[in-house]
């Protein structure tokens, strides 16, 4: 019985919260092309190191939820989140702030694409998708899941499972395109930027698959910085991070994301995303 107290203190020592993390760590998953992540983002780390004067490290992650977890657990203090993952992260770590978004993210949109056999004709009004098979992107994607599901529910007045014959989660925008092009699913929703680059790269046969509807614009990717960085890295650190991001003009760095430039953003910009996520039940 007497051994319990020392045991507890040993346990506490062993598992003590990491002392002041001297390294400023960030993570990022681009919305297209995840190859060579470390090579690409290590350059961003070097840039930030120069601007911030502290050691900066990039941690590669595999999914938005992994990025959110790392952010929540203070393993990263800065993250390039999608719209939804940013909202999730800021809810889990109160006091965290969206500080910058991509220029394109102010008016992001998703494309609904359809296989030619459906004979759905592109139109400004929402297509009647009843009875088709449909694939989203990955489950936690803003442009491949959240917003498309919201617009489907709002326009057709039903839950997706009551509309579609079959629902898939392709896991990735490129794969959504490949699957709809092959006719595996008849209709799909995809990040517009990924569609445009695939089109430019000649990966899309417009005779087989084409855009049938474009969503209204919504805010998407943003840089979110964790609460408490000023205490850890010095007064005014957050402002310096923001300045460094907004001042990033090197196209070689920007194309890793890939964005034209970064512009200021704040938490309020993402209220629509949070409301949508609540509406369709992805967050409570």
């Amino acid at each position: 019985m007497f051994a319990i107290k020392p045991l507890i203190s040993m346990f506490v020592l062993l598992f003590a919260p990491s002392l002041l993390a001297a390294t400023f760590t960030f993570t990022a998953i681009p919305d297209e092309d995840e190859s060579q992540l470390r090579t690409r983002f290590d350059k961003v780390a070097v840039y930030l190191e120069e601007k911030l004067g502290v050691e900066v490290k990039y941690v590669p992650v595999k999914s938005y939820s992994a990025a959110v977890t790392a952010f929540r657990n203070n393993q990263v203090q800065l993250a390039w989140f999608g719209g939804l993952s940013g909202v999730q992260a800021r809810r889990l770590v109160p006091g965290s702030d969206a500080i910058a978004q991509g220029y394109e993210d102010q008016f992001f949109k998703s494309y609904f694409i359809a296989h030619h056999s459906t004979e759905i004709i592109a139109d400004d009004s929402f297509p009647n998708l009843n009875g088709y098979t449909f694939t989203f992107g990955s489950k936690d994607s803003t442009s491949g899941r959240l917003m498309p599901q919201f617009f489907i529910e709002r326009n057709l007045g039903k839950r997706p499972e009551d509309i579609f014959k079959r629902i898939g989660f392709s896991g990735d925008h490129s794969r959504t395109i490949a699957q709809v092009q092959a006719g595996v699913y008849q209709v799909g929703a995809v990040n517009y930027k990924v569609w445009e680059s695939a089109l430019a790269a000649g990966k899309i046969d417009l005779n087989k698959v084409d855009v049938i509807w474009t969503t209204p614009t919504y805010p998407d990717y943003q840089w979110t910085v964790r609460a408490g960085v000023d205490e850890t890295f010095g007064e005014g650190f957050k402002a310096r991070v923001e300045a460094a991001l907004l001042g990033m003009t090197d196209t070689d760095l920007l194309k890793s994301f890939p964005r034209k430039s970064f512009v200021p953003a704040e938490n309020q910009d993402y209220e629509p995303i949070e409301n949508v996520a609540k509406t369709i039940g992805l967050i409570d």
């Binding site: 346990f11 062993l14 598992f15 657990n73």
Partner: peptide
Amino acid sequence: ITTIDGSLV
């Protein structure tokens, strides 16, 4: 191995 944070557990 990043330090294990007891509070997370």
